[in-house]
Design a binder for these strands. Structure first.
Lengths: 344, 344
DNA sequence: ATGAAAGCGCTAACAT
DNA sequence: ATGTTAGCGCTTTCAT
């Protein structure tokens, strides 16, 4: 904990400028009711003295805080790091600080972080993690979010959060899932194994739904394909790949539902001497920066993560609307070297 | 800005528990001077009511803030994202929030962010970006840091920051530079081109110094090698690779001074039909998560970024010492597929 | 347009 | 061990 041993105060500025602290306050916060000349003088004195207002005092007195909270699953994960980059960019442009919390992919931790941010007195919260299909989690999130909004807080989420009813930036996960599956199908793949994260995540459900649509177009059903659930990470991808190779050695393609998992899949395939794309095609989802530089370059679905971060904060910066706003972030299929026509 | 329209206050808890607000305060903050039974009751009431203390009021009254500020060049960059992950982990364990600022690699922005964080009332600042060799920048950083420490703030930096005199976690950049260069030299490479970032960064100077030592062991001098300066990013690596290929087509190895640049180098080499490692060996520095999964897997120097983040905050959490503390983060050479004996 | 003064919610002396 | 009360530095009525 920091002890404010020193530090200039508003009184100091006021005295130096020969005005009352009320006038000084108005001049510095740009409020009306001060002659421009006086305001100018006060500001000059403040800069000269190097005065910086105490946020805590300001927030306490005004009941308004300029800080924005950002909740991510894991900041070390490129997907969230890129989103964070977009959020920081917009925050910087508005002179706001960003407090980041991570949840370790635990939905209960997410609720706890929300509470913590509210307690930490931020005025805006952006939730970057996927929504959850679990009713219990949804209810808790909803309660927490509403409590925060009731005290004047603003919330925006990235991803589909069923029942939440707040402003949202929703990536085209269904369309993306459809596009990537369609790509594999059009290459003649039929024995496709899916490396998936938890089905309790809305993101996962949506991407799978898209895959199912594409399959349906070809008279196939998702239920007939092996869908292996594992952690939504590089290691999870490794895990899934091993299980797929063992249980379904005849698969000609592995469709991973994010790039992290795809990297793990590629890694295990390499270890086992399976050639990509000659023996098995592999696809990812997200198009994180390195995806195009992998071995081989990964065919994937691009999502504009940084822009999603920007847009989410921009939504949250807007005054609350009667109906929750919704922006869609478009996907784009990136065909690279990790996919090829099905062998045979 | 958030308006606190509602919200429970300490008085509410005190009333419900039938005690004074002083007792309530003591009970909740765990201060001495309250009977355990009473403290327990107060805490129970607080949880039941869902009371969360107002940080602004608390910080204002106590003059201490639990927030920690983290300054990075770019949070979307995996190197910094991993450091941030370590900082968040330790902060979480101590019940503290982390405010992240990015500087866009501009040293003057770094100074400005420091000032902003101090103004935002954080108690601790961790600076993750490399130190700068420019005297002017050093002086400004120093002034800003001292001003912050004078008001009771704590600061820790990651990387060597000449003249700063604060607690630091210093990665073994010199040893790493030496190890990676020695690796190439032992493979018989002599015509080595270096893809470097700005030489004004301490990190860069240190890594180059290590390279120079290894060269010296083999009777060579850095001055005789092409050292191409470019942005310390993937695009910078591309830029450097193009210039190297054009001006020094006979180079048998490209030593990039971070992984981002190495990825860019690999990318350009691929485009131009240069085989790695058959025609040209390529090395990186940092060992970001994907380095081992690139095409080909990158030989590089591993730095424990996440742990560096952890350690930096742990240092900053300690009370200020008479002499600045210094922890060294060890490097480790990771030999992979991107290097091979020099051709011919 | 300017100033005086009453809080914002909490902590930390200072009583008791 | 518990309660009373004076601030922390600022914003914002309310006077003037």
């Amino acid at each position: 904990m920091r002890k404010h041993t020193a530090g200039l105060r508003l009184v100091d500025v006021a005295e130096h400028a020969g005005v009352s602290i009320a006038t000084a306050s108005r001049a510095l916060s740009g409020a009306a009711g001060v002659s421009e000349a006086l305001a100018e003088r006060v500001r000059a004195v403040a800069t000269e003295l190097g005065y910086v207002a105490n946020v805590h005092a300001r927030s306490l007195a005004s009941g308004a805080s300029p800080a924005v909270g950002l909740v991510v699953h894991e900041i070390g994960d490129p997907y969230f790091a890129e989103i964070a980059s977009g959020v920081l960019e917009v925050a910087g442009a508005h002179g706001r600080m960003v407090q980041i919390c991570h949840t370790g992919r635990d939905p209960h931790a997410e609720v706890a972080q929300l509470r913590a941010l509210a307690g930490a007195g931020v005025g805006i919260i952006v939730v970057a993690g996927s929504g959850h299909l679990d009713r219990d989690v949804q209810a808790q999130m909803k309660a927490q979010v509403h409590a925060f909004e009731a005290t004047g807080g603003r919330v925006a989420v990235i991803g589909r959060h069923p029942q939440l009813g707040v402003d949202a930036v929703v990536p085209a996960n269904v369309a993306g899932g459809r596009a990537i599956a369609e790509h594999l199908l059009s290459l003649g793949h039929r024995r496709i194994a899916v490396a998936a994260g938890s089905r309790r995540l809305a993101t996962m459900a949506d991407r799978l739904a898209g895959v199912e649509q594409a399959l349906g177009d070809h008279g196939l059903r998702l239920a007939d394909l092996p869908v292996v659930e594992a952690a939504f990470t590089l290691d999870g991808g490794k895990d899934a790949a091993r299980r797929i190779l063992d249980a379904h050695p005849d698969a000609t393609a592995i469709l991973a539902l994010n790039d992290d998992m795809a990297v793990g899949v590629l890694s295990v395939l390499g270890e086992r001497g399976v050639w990509v794309p000659d023996d098995v095609s592999v696809t990812g989802f997200d198009d994180v920066t390195v995806a195009g530089h992998l071995s081989p370059a990964l065919t994937t679905v691009r999502l504009p993560m940084k822009d999603m971060g920007r847009q989410a904060l921009e939504l949250a910066l807007l005054p609350r609307a009667a109906r929750a706003r919704r922006r869609t972030a478009e996907q784009r299929l990136m065909v690279r070297a990790s996919t090829a026509p099905a062998p045979g």
